[in-house]
């Protein structure tokens, strides 16, 4: 027995409708569907959604059935012209023999051709895959270059944030582009936040000490660079990072201050 909901949630039924499972896997899914009607309901909904989606990508409604009907009629209509002339047995056997040799030759050629075509399909698929990879790499490169350009800007202010008592090895840095009111925060040196907690960045003015929330640092980008780009319109004199409950807090929890750094005047 399987748990239907878990099975549905695994996403296997979508792949079943796509036709990207192996034949054995598909047969297994078909077998389970026959046993569990709720799986059939789900499959039909998925199929309905996909039909709508692919339907929408059609440039227009294709021509009606008539043209294809015409084709199935004509493909069956090829008549063979009968041979009425009598031949001597020997020549007719020779004719058959020649035809057989030719047929065998053709069959061989056909098989070879098929092999080559399969190979081409494989190569083309590989090429499409490769193009996908190249595209992803290029996207990343552009991202990285943009970041690098930002960090190399001569007007950027670097503020190292030093460890506080709570985690003596922690380290972070803020790169602040005052003109563009942007900061880049590098948090690679912070320990992994415990479950249910997030790091939150604060801009501080010192006299009197006033913290301004700059946002929680929980949306790590997929590349794992752990660099955040955050707008900073504040006249910051220092930056600090605290550990806060999920979602962030309105005021910093100072007992959980991880790193702190003052902007050099």
């Amino acid at each position: 027995m399987i748990n239907s909901q878990e099975y549905i949630d695994s996403g296997v039924l979508e792949l079943y409708v796509y036709g990207t499972l192996s034949e054995a896997e598909s047969r297994e899914v078909t077998r389970l569907i026959a046993e569990h009607p709720e799986l059939l309901v789900e499959v039909e909904r998925i199929e309905k959604g996909l039909q709508q989606l692919s339907n929408a990508t059609a440039p227009y409604t294709p021509s009606d059935f008539k043209s294809i009907y015409h084709k199935i009629k004509t493909q069956n209509g090829e008549n063979v012209i009968p041979l009425s002339r009598k031949r001597t047995p020997l020549t007719s056997y020779l004719g058959w023999a020649a035809a057989l040799v030719l047929l065998a030759g053709l069959g061989y050629q056909f098989a070879q051709n098929k092999k080559l075509e399969d190979k081409i399909t494989d190569i083309q698929r590989e090429q499409v895959l490769q193009e996908g990879r190249t595209q992803m790499t290029q996207e990343r490169l552009v991202q990285t270059e943009t970041l690098l350009d930002a960090l190399r800007n001569k007007d950027i202010i670097t503020v190292p944030l030093k460890a506080q008592e709570i985690a003596p090895d922690a380290y972070a840095a803020v790169y602040w582009d005052k003109d563009a009111s942007k900061t880049y925060v590098d948090v690679r040196g912070l320990p992994q936040p415990p479950k249910g907690k997030v790091y939150q960045l604060w801009s501080l003015t010192l006299d009197p000490l006033t913290p301004t929330n700059m946002g929680v640092l929980d949306q790590y980008d997929t590349r794992g660079t752990q660099l955040f780009e955050i707008d900073n319109p504040n006249t910051s004199q220092a930056f600090g990072i605290t550990l806060e409950p999920k979602g962030g807090s309105d005021t910093p929890t100072l007992e959980e201050l991880y790193v702190l750094g003052v902007v050099e005047p």
């Binding site: 079943y16 409708v17 796509y18 036709g19 034949e23 598909s26 047969r27 899914v29 078909t30 077998r31 499959v43 199929e47 996909l50 039909q51």
Partner: peptide, 8 residues
């Protein structure tokens, strides 16, 4: 039908 959906 054992191999999958007709649409597929």
């Amino acid at each position: 039908p054992e191999k999958g959906r007709f649409f597929t």
